[in-house]
């Protein structure tokens, strides 16, 4: 951890505002996901629904380091990534509800959130399958010149799949401006990383491909941001990829059908991680610096609750896609 991440002195006003925005984004994601869980149990959301609760600092810290013209691609636990990238709560919630107003017009669902204008390229449901796509986006950036980059989020279980290794090899071989984010939340569904990976320090896998890599504390958004800044500089200035293993934890089950604890992990373990909650870590740091307090915190809680309530109301009131939408978007429209 760096000095900035530990600092208890009050930073300048701009930094204070930045920290407040990080806090707001994390709290928004938390509340959004809690509400999505409720909506799922009410039957408003169908299919699979993978919540991001506990991992918020990763999405927020990573996105904070990017520019609007960069690209982001993610797996299926991506509601938080989408929100942190700037998609509205309304568009994401409406997509979970399968509505025409959703970010993918109701055709994608929880696992396929897209916003091309925001450079958010999904939302992919096959473990590890999108990792080469990120390298392809980075390939295109390099092909065209310029200093855009592509960030790819995936879980630690995806680091065991062939696509991960093939992609890291080519990304390094060809010096592609991609940043590969392993969100190591400890479990691929119910399989602990130690039961799935021969080497549990996943960052060392960068060595095999001569790719700079770091292990990062994912419960501290400022630490994540700092690691990202180093990776972003490497991508923009040197057109080189980075592997970041960001250690985090999901408080909830893999999807909606499994309990948070009781089978593959204990309640004590979940409680232990909750004591280093990413929202509390930042709020405490801000309080220690004297630029945050319980009153402001409570007001922010109310603010994000209102935003999420509005998103649910909007999603609920939005129409289903028109039946004619069934057969559109399979191919490009005629004449294009």
């Amino acid at each position: 951890m760096t000095a900035t991440a530990r600092s208890t002195k009050a930073p300048d006003a701009a930094t204070q505002a930045l920290h407040r925005s990080y806090l707001r984004q994390m709290m928004l994601i938390r509340r959004f996901e809690e509400k999505a869980g409720e909506a799922y149990s009410l039957g408003k959301i169908g299919g699979f629904c993978h919540l991001y609760i506990g991992q918020e600092a990763v999405a927020v810290g990573v996105m904070a380091a990017l520019r609007p013209d960069d690209h982001v691609i993610s797996a299926y636990r991506e509601h938080g990534h989408a929100l942190a990238r700037g998609l509205t709560s309304r568009a994401v919630m409406a997509e979970l509800f399968g509505k025409a107003t959703g970010s993918s017009a109701g055709k994608g669902g929880s696992m396929h959130i897209f916003d091309a204008a925001a450079g958010f390229l999904g939302g992919h449901g096959i473990v590890g399958s999108h990792i080469p796509l990120a390298a392809g986006v980075a390939f295109a950036h390099k092909y065209r010149g310029g200093d855009q980059l592509c960030v790819c989020f995936f879980g630690e279980a995806a680091a065991n799949i062939g696509a991960f290794h093939e992609t890291l090899n080519m990304a390094s071989l060809w010096d592609l401006p991609a940043i590969f984010i392993v969100e190591n939340n400890g479990y691929g569904m119910g399989t602990a990383v130690s039961r799935a990976a021969a080497v549990t320090n996943l960052s060392v896998r960068g060595n095999a491909y001569d790719m700079p890599a770091e292990q990062v504390d994912g419960q501290n958004v400022l630490t994540v941001r700092e690691a990202m800044d180093r990776a972003v500089t490497r991508a923009r200035a040197e057109s080189k990829p980075t592997l970041l293993e960001i250690k985090t934890y999901r408080y909830v089950g893999h999807s909606m059908s499994d309990a948070a604890h009781g089978t593959y992990r204990t309640k004590d373990e979940v409680d232990e991680y909750r004591r280093r909650d990413p929202i509390a870590v930042l709020a405490d740091l801000m309080k220690a610096g004297g630029y945050w307090d319980d009153g402001r915190h409570d007001a922010l809680v109310t603010e994000v609750q209102a935003e999420v309530e509005d998103a649910v109301t909007f999603a609920d009131a939005s129409p289903d896609p028109d039946p004619s939408a069934l057969y559109t978007d399979v191919y490009a429209p005629e004449g294009r």
């Binding site: 080469p132 392809g136 986006v137 090899n169 080519m170």
Partner: peptide
Amino acid sequence: PIAELGFAGIGVGAAMV
């Protein structure tokens, strides 16, 4: 390299943008 899955996916990613 001999990595069909990887370079097919790289192609798809490049086409996406």
